[in-house]
Nucleic acid binder design. Sequence first.
DNA 1: TAGGCCATCTGGTCCT
DNA 2: AGGACCAGATGGCCTA
Length: 246
Amino acid sequence: MPASLETCLSDLDCSTTSSSSNSDLSGFLTDEEDCARLQPPDSASGPPAPPRRGAPGISGAPDAPGAQDDEQERRRRRGRARVRSEALLHSLRRSRRVKANDRERNRMHNLNAALDALRSVLPSFPDDTKLTKIETLRFAYNYIWALAETLRLADQGLPGGGARERLLPPQSAPCLPGPPSPISDAESWGSGAAASPCAAATSPLSDPSSPAASEDFAYGPGDPLFPFPGLSKDLLHTTPCFIPYH
DNA sequence: TAGGCCATCTGGTCCT
DNA sequence: AGGACCAGATGGCCTA
């Protein structure tokens, strides 16, 4: 095989006037699948047929010996080879594209599977609405943030620390999907952290400069999808989500 | 019917 | 060189 199949094909692309370089492409193709695909549409049933003298549409000229006929025959062969090489080039590019499409499809399927796995560990909603991709990412972001904040408050012994058990999934089923128990005592949350949850926070997630309050960001205050309605006090205003709307 | 979401295709770029 | 990754384009499906 030549140093680069692509180079060969590029050469072919630009060699339509050369009769020697495009007369036979099969020597360039070592990939069996490619070779199998590389049958030009007009030769799918086998190797290219030998030139047919006097075939209709070619010249119709009678067989006459002489240099002029030889030249015409060479021209015809060059023309047929060019058509073949273009078909082969197109076919090879097509087969590569098909393979790349397949890989891309598989990649996106893997990505979607990962998103499904992420959805499965997030609290679900009563109506069982499937979160969209972007919702899943934003939700996960804020869910993690809320869990971290819960742990922080619990470690500080502040009111609301008891919510640790309510927010964390059971140990026996750490990946069990399902909503956390509703937090009804919003005031206990609010009163503990309301003063300045941002100031107390050390996590980068609680960066006061977070764009949480911006309307450009999802799951801000009042967002019905936010998993912890009980956190709807000031603490919510610190909820960061760095995944902006566009 | 418009808009949102999604899957797929595609070509370009980066990485190994 | 080939695969991974990315973003734009396109068309289908669904819902308000």
